[in-house]
Protein backbone atom coordinates (compact mmCIF):
# COMPACT_ATOMS: atom_id res chain seq x y z
CA UNK A 1 0.00 0.00 0.00
CA UNK A 2 1.45 3.31 -1.06
CA UNK A 3 1.69 6.58 0.83
CA UNK A 4 -0.29 8.25 -1.96
CA UNK A 5 -3.28 5.98 -1.35
CA UNK A 6 -3.16 6.72 2.37
CA UNK A 7 -3.11 10.50 1.80
CA UNK A 8 -5.99 10.18 -0.66
CA UNK A 9 -8.03 8.18 1.79
CA UNK A 10 -7.31 10.63 4.61
CA UNK A 11 -8.55 13.44 2.35
CA UNK A 12 -11.66 11.40 1.49
CA UNK A 13 -12.25 10.84 5.20
CA UNK A 14 -11.85 14.56 5.91
CA UNK A 15 -14.28 15.43 3.13
CA UNK A 16 -16.84 12.97 4.48
CA UNK A 17 -16.23 14.26 8.00
CA UNK A 18 -16.81 17.96 7.22
CA UNK A 19 -20.04 17.12 5.38
CA UNK A 20 -21.19 15.11 8.39
CA UNK A 21 -20.34 18.12 10.51
CA UNK A 22 -22.76 20.30 8.55
CA UNK A 23 -25.53 17.83 9.43
CA UNK A 24 -24.45 17.20 12.99
CA UNK A 25 -23.96 20.90 13.80
CA UNK A 26 -27.60 21.67 12.99
CA UNK A 27 -28.86 18.66 14.93
CA UNK A 28 -26.80 19.38 18.00
CA UNK A 29 -27.67 23.09 17.92
CA UNK A 30 -31.39 22.29 17.74
CA UNK A 31 -31.06 19.78 20.55
CA UNK A 32 -28.91 22.09 22.66
CA UNK A 33 -31.19 25.13 22.38
CA UNK A 34 -34.66 23.59 22.09
CA UNK A 35 -34.13 20.14 23.58
CA UNK A 36 -35.61 18.58 20.46
CA UNK A 37 -34.54 15.42 18.67
CA UNK A 38 -35.23 16.03 15.00
CA UNK A 39 -35.37 12.93 12.80
CA UNK A 40 -36.59 15.03 9.90
CA UNK A 41 -33.18 16.69 9.58
CA UNK A 42 -32.32 14.18 6.86
CA UNK A 43 -35.37 15.33 4.90
CA UNK A 44 -34.04 18.90 4.91
CA UNK A 45 -30.77 17.53 3.51
CA UNK A 46 -32.80 15.86 0.78
CA UNK A 47 -34.77 19.07 0.10
CA UNK A 48 -31.46 20.92 -0.36
CA UNK A 49 -30.18 18.37 -2.85
CA UNK A 50 -33.39 18.28 -4.91
CA UNK A 51 -33.71 22.05 -5.06
CA UNK A 52 -30.04 22.38 -6.03
CA UNK A 53 -30.41 19.80 -8.80
CA UNK A 54 -33.53 21.50 -10.14
CA UNK A 55 -32.11 25.02 -10.03
CA UNK A 56 -28.76 23.92 -11.51
CA UNK A 57 -30.55 22.17 -14.35
CA UNK A 58 -32.70 25.25 -15.03
CA UNK A 59 -30.06 27.98 -14.73
CA UNK A 60 -26.76 26.17 -15.18
CA UNK A 61 -25.28 28.04 -12.23
CA UNK A 62 -23.94 25.92 -9.37
CA UNK A 63 -23.56 28.89 -7.05
CA UNK A 64 -27.16 29.90 -7.60
CA UNK A 65 -28.15 26.27 -6.93
CA UNK A 66 -26.32 26.33 -3.59
CA UNK A 67 -27.98 29.56 -2.53
CA UNK A 68 -31.40 28.23 -3.58
CA UNK A 69 -30.77 24.95 -1.71
CA UNK A 70 -29.92 26.78 1.52
CA UNK A 71 -32.85 29.14 1.10
CA UNK A 72 -35.35 26.40 0.36
CA UNK A 73 -34.13 24.19 3.23
CA UNK A 74 -34.23 27.16 5.63
CA UNK A 75 -37.75 27.99 4.49
CA UNK A 76 -38.91 24.38 4.77
CA UNK A 77 -37.31 24.30 8.23
CA UNK A 78 -39.01 27.51 9.35
CA UNK A 79 -42.31 26.24 7.98
CA UNK A 80 -42.26 22.93 9.86
CA UNK A 81 -40.96 24.69 12.97
CA UNK A 82 -43.94 27.03 12.99
CA UNK A 83 -46.56 24.41 12.14
CA UNK A 84 -45.39 21.24 13.91
CA UNK A 85 -42.08 21.40 15.76
CA UNK A 86 -43.16 24.32 17.96
CA UNK A 87 -45.81 22.13 19.57
CA UNK A 88 -43.22 19.52 20.51
CA UNK A 89 -40.81 21.51 22.70
CA UNK A 90 -42.66 20.71 25.89
CA UNK A 91 -43.54 17.10 25.08
CA UNK A 92 -41.44 14.03 25.77
CA UNK A 93 -38.88 12.56 23.40
CA UNK A 94 -41.25 9.83 22.25
CA UNK A 95 -43.64 12.39 20.76
CA UNK A 96 -40.75 14.23 19.12
CA UNK A 97 -39.48 11.01 17.56
CA UNK A 98 -42.92 10.10 16.25
CA UNK A 99 -43.86 13.52 14.93
CA UNK A 100 -40.54 14.00 13.16
CA UNK A 101 -40.74 10.43 11.81
CA UNK A 102 -44.17 11.35 10.45
CA UNK A 103 -42.58 14.40 8.80
CA UNK A 104 -40.04 12.10 7.13
CA UNK A 105 -42.87 10.02 5.67
CA UNK A 106 -44.55 13.13 4.33
CA UNK A 107 -41.33 14.66 2.94
CA UNK A 108 -40.01 11.45 1.35
CA UNK A 109 -43.27 10.40 -0.21
CA UNK A 110 -44.06 13.98 -1.23
CA UNK A 111 -40.70 14.28 -2.99
CA UNK A 112 -41.30 10.95 -4.73
CA UNK A 113 -44.70 12.22 -5.79
CA UNK A 114 -43.27 15.42 -7.30
CA UNK A 115 -39.98 14.17 -8.76
CA UNK A 116 -40.66 10.46 -9.31
CA UNK A 117 -38.48 7.58 -8.16
CA UNK A 118 -35.58 8.15 -10.56
CA UNK A 119 -32.46 9.84 -9.16
CA UNK A 120 -31.69 13.35 -10.38
CA UNK A 121 -28.26 14.37 -11.55
CA UNK A 122 -26.44 17.40 -10.21
CA UNK A 123 -23.37 18.39 -12.26
CA UNK A 124 -20.23 19.66 -10.56
CA UNK A 125 -19.33 23.25 -11.44
CA UNK A 126 -16.99 23.65 -14.44
CA UNK A 127 -14.44 25.62 -12.45
CA UNK A 128 -13.94 22.72 -10.04
CA UNK A 129 -13.76 19.95 -12.62
CA UNK A 130 -10.71 17.74 -12.91
CA UNK A 131 -8.07 17.21 -10.30
CA UNK A 132 -5.32 19.16 -8.69
CA UNK A 133 -1.75 17.95 -8.24
CA UNK A 134 -0.79 18.22 -4.60
CA UNK A 135 2.80 18.02 -3.31
CA UNK A 136 4.49 14.59 -3.72
CA UNK A 137 2.55 14.03 -6.96
CA UNK A 138 -0.82 13.28 -5.40
CA UNK A 139 -3.73 13.79 -7.76
CA UNK A 140 -6.95 14.77 -5.98
CA UNK A 141 -10.29 15.98 -7.40
CA UNK A 142 -10.68 19.74 -7.09
CA UNK A 143 -14.33 19.46 -6.17
CA UNK A 144 -13.63 17.28 -3.13
CA UNK A 145 -10.91 19.69 -2.00
CA UNK A 146 -13.45 22.50 -2.35
CA UNK A 147 -15.87 20.51 -0.18
CA UNK A 148 -13.27 20.23 2.57
CA UNK A 149 -12.59 23.98 2.27
CA UNK A 150 -16.29 24.86 2.30
CA UNK A 151 -16.95 22.62 5.32
CA UNK A 152 -14.10 24.16 7.29
CA UNK A 153 -15.23 27.67 6.32
CA UNK A 154 -18.76 26.97 7.53
CA UNK A 155 -17.40 25.53 10.77
CA UNK A 156 -15.37 28.70 11.31
CA UNK A 157 -18.34 30.88 10.41
CA UNK A 158 -20.59 29.00 12.80
CA UNK A 159 -18.04 29.37 15.58
CA UNK A 160 -17.77 33.12 14.93
CA UNK A 161 -21.58 33.43 14.86
CA UNK A 162 -21.99 31.69 18.16
CA UNK A 163 -18.95 33.02 19.99
CA UNK A 164 -18.77 36.59 18.72
CA UNK A 165 -22.17 37.93 17.70
CA UNK A 166 -25.19 39.17 19.59
CA UNK A 167 -27.40 36.43 18.14
CA UNK A 168 -24.77 33.91 19.27
CA UNK A 169 -24.98 35.24 22.81
CA UNK A 170 -28.75 34.76 22.69
CA UNK A 171 -28.39 31.23 21.39
CA UNK A 172 -25.98 30.33 24.18
CA UNK A 173 -28.21 32.00 26.72
CA UNK A 174 -31.15 30.05 25.34
CA UNK A 175 -29.21 26.83 25.94
CA UNK A 176 -28.54 27.71 29.54
CA UNK A 177 -31.71 29.34 30.79
CA UNK A 178 -34.63 29.91 28.47
CA UNK A 179 -36.97 31.41 31.09
CA UNK A 180 -34.42 34.02 32.03
CA UNK A 181 -33.71 35.25 28.55
CA UNK A 182 -37.42 35.32 27.79
CA UNK A 183 -37.85 37.45 30.92
CA UNK A 184 -35.10 39.77 29.68
CA UNK A 185 -37.21 40.56 26.64
CA UNK A 186 -35.72 38.28 24.00
CA UNK A 187 -38.40 36.94 21.67
CA UNK A 188 -37.75 33.28 22.30
CA UNK A 189 -40.18 32.04 19.65
CA UNK A 190 -38.40 33.93 16.88
CA UNK A 191 -35.05 32.79 18.24
CA UNK A 192 -36.18 29.15 18.09
CA UNK A 193 -37.45 29.53 14.54
CA UNK A 194 -34.15 31.17 13.58
CA UNK A 195 -32.05 28.37 15.14
CA UNK A 196 -34.17 25.71 13.45
CA UNK A 197 -33.92 27.46 10.08
CA UNK A 198 -30.16 27.85 10.54
CA UNK A 199 -29.77 24.13 11.19
CA UNK A 200 -32.00 23.40 8.21
CA UNK A 201 -29.94 25.66 5.94
CA UNK A 202 -26.75 23.82 6.96
CA UNK A 203 -28.41 20.48 6.20
CA UNK A 204 -29.65 21.82 2.84
CA UNK A 205 -26.14 23.06 2.01
CA UNK A 206 -24.67 19.65 2.86
CA UNK A 207 -27.29 17.92 0.70
CA UNK A 208 -26.55 20.17 -2.28
CA UNK A 209 -22.76 19.83 -1.95
CA UNK A 210 -22.85 16.04 -1.56
CA UNK A 211 -25.55 15.76 -4.23
CA UNK A 212 -22.91 16.58 -6.85
CA UNK A 213 -20.80 13.54 -5.97
CA UNK A 214 -23.65 11.11 -5.27
CA UNK A 215 -27.03 10.74 -6.91
CA UNK A 216 -29.89 12.92 -5.72
CA UNK A 217 -32.67 10.57 -4.65
CA UNK A 218 -35.44 10.06 -2.13
CA UNK A 219 -34.18 8.69 1.18
CA UNK A 220 -30.63 10.00 0.62
CA UNK A 221 -30.73 11.91 3.90
CA UNK A 222 -31.47 9.05 6.25
CA UNK A 223 -28.13 7.20 6.29
CA UNK A 224 -26.45 10.59 6.77
CA UNK A 225 -28.87 11.46 9.56
CA UNK A 226 -28.06 8.28 11.47
CA UNK A 227 -24.32 8.85 11.01
CA UNK A 228 -24.85 12.39 12.29
CA UNK A 229 -26.48 10.86 15.39
CA UNK A 230 -23.42 8.69 15.89
CA UNK A 231 -21.30 11.84 15.57
CA UNK A 232 -23.37 13.61 18.21
CA UNK A 233 -23.32 10.67 20.59
CA UNK A 234 -19.54 10.52 20.28
CA UNK A 235 -19.06 14.29 20.53
CA UNK A 236 -21.65 14.92 23.23
CA UNK A 237 -25.12 16.31 22.64
CA UNK A 238 -25.36 20.09 22.38
CA UNK A 239 -21.67 20.67 21.81
CA UNK A 240 -20.67 22.17 18.45
CA UNK A 241 -17.01 21.45 19.21
CA UNK A 242 -17.97 17.85 19.99
CA UNK A 243 -19.84 17.66 16.69
CA UNK A 244 -16.77 18.88 14.82
CA UNK A 245 -14.35 16.45 16.47
CA UNK A 246 -16.88 13.61 16.30
CA UNK A 247 -17.59 14.25 12.61
CA UNK A 248 -13.92 14.11 11.66
CA UNK A 249 -13.36 10.97 13.76
CA UNK A 250 -16.37 9.22 12.22
CA UNK A 251 -15.49 10.34 8.68
CA UNK A 252 -11.90 9.14 8.98
CA UNK A 253 -12.81 5.87 10.74
CA UNK A 254 -15.41 4.98 8.14
CA UNK A 255 -13.23 5.78 5.13
CA UNK A 256 -9.96 4.36 6.44
CA UNK A 257 -11.65 1.31 7.95
CA UNK A 258 -13.07 0.34 4.56
CA UNK A 259 -9.55 0.39 3.07
CA UNK A 260 -7.33 -0.85 5.85
CA UNK A 261 -9.35 -3.49 7.68
CA UNK A 262 -9.43 -5.93 4.71
CA UNK A 263 -5.67 -5.34 4.27
CA UNK A 264 -5.11 -5.94 7.97
CA UNK A 265 -6.96 -9.26 7.88
CA UNK A 266 -4.99 -10.34 4.81
CA UNK A 267 -1.92 -10.50 7.06
CA UNK A 268 -3.23 -13.63 8.77
CA UNK A 269 -6.17 -14.91 6.67
CA UNK A 270 -6.60 -16.08 3.12
CA UNK A 271 -7.40 -13.09 0.85
CA UNK A 272 -10.99 -14.02 -0.08
CA UNK A 273 -12.29 -14.41 3.46
CA UNK A 274 -10.09 -11.51 4.66
CA UNK A 275 -11.85 -9.20 2.21
CA UNK A 276 -15.21 -10.52 3.41
CA UNK A 277 -14.49 -10.25 7.13
CA UNK A 278 -12.72 -6.93 6.68
CA UNK A 279 -15.60 -5.42 4.73
CA UNK A 280 -18.13 -6.62 7.30
CA UNK A 281 -16.11 -5.24 10.18
CA UNK A 282 -15.48 -1.97 8.35
CA UNK A 283 -19.22 -1.47 7.93
CA UNK A 284 -19.54 -1.82 11.70
CA UNK A 285 -16.41 0.15 12.67
CA UNK A 286 -18.02 3.47 13.56
CA UNK A 287 -20.71 1.79 15.65
CA UNK A 288 -18.09 -0.15 17.56
CA UNK A 289 -16.26 3.13 18.05
CA UNK A 290 -19.48 4.64 19.39
CA UNK A 291 -19.93 1.71 21.78
CA UNK A 292 -16.35 2.17 23.01
CA UNK A 293 -16.90 5.90 23.63
CA UNK A 294 -20.11 5.08 25.51
CA UNK A 295 -18.36 2.67 27.83
CA UNK A 296 -15.60 5.16 28.44
CA UNK A 297 -17.71 8.36 28.57
CA UNK A 298 -21.48 7.87 28.51
CA UNK A 299 -22.16 11.54 27.73
CA UNK A 300 -19.72 11.79 24.84
CA UNK A 301 -16.34 13.47 24.51
CA UNK A 302 -17.51 17.04 25.15
CA UNK A 303 -20.93 16.40 26.67
CA UNK A 304 -22.04 17.90 29.96
CA UNK A 305 -21.42 15.59 32.90
CA UNK A 306 -24.66 13.98 34.00
Amino acid sequence: MSAILIVEQVLNGLQFGVMLFLMAAGLTLIFGVMGLINLAHGSLYMVGAFVAATVAAATGSFLLALVAAMGAAAMAGALIEMTVIRRLYHTDHLDQVLATFALILVFSEGTRWIFGSFPLYLARPEALAGSLTLPFGIEYPRYRLALIGAGLAVALGLWLLIAKTRIGIRIRAGENDREMIAALGVDIRTLYTFVFALGAALAGLAGALVGAIQSVQVGMGEPVLILAFVVIVIGGIGSIKGAFVGALVVGLTDTLGGIFLPELFKLFMEPASATQVGASLASMAIYLLMAAVLIWRPTGLYGARA
Binding site: V97, F229, V230, I232, S283, Y287, L294, P298, T299
Partner: peptide, 21 residues
Protein backbone atom coordinates in the same frame (compact mmCIF):
# COMPACT_ATOMS: atom_id res chain seq x y z
CA UNK B 1 -25.69 3.47 30.41
CA UNK B 2 -27.44 6.51 29.00
CA UNK B 3 -31.02 7.68 28.88
CA UNK B 4 -33.39 10.02 27.08
CA UNK B 5 -32.33 11.24 23.70
CA UNK B 6 -28.98 9.41 23.82
CA UNK B 7 -30.86 6.14 24.23
CA UNK B 8 -32.93 6.84 21.11
CA UNK B 9 -29.91 7.70 18.99
CA UNK B 10 -27.88 4.74 20.21
CA UNK B 11 -30.56 2.14 19.60
CA UNK B 12 -31.05 3.69 16.17
CA UNK B 13 -27.32 3.48 15.48
CA UNK B 14 -27.06 -0.15 16.57
CA UNK B 15 -29.97 -0.93 14.26
CA UNK B 16 -28.08 0.62 11.38
CA UNK B 17 -25.00 -1.41 12.31
CA UNK B 18 -26.90 -4.68 11.96
CA UNK B 19 -28.42 -3.42 8.71
CA UNK B 20 -25.04 -2.77 7.14
CA UNK B 21 -23.67 -6.00 8.54
Amino acid sequence: RTSGVYFIMITLAFGQMFYYF
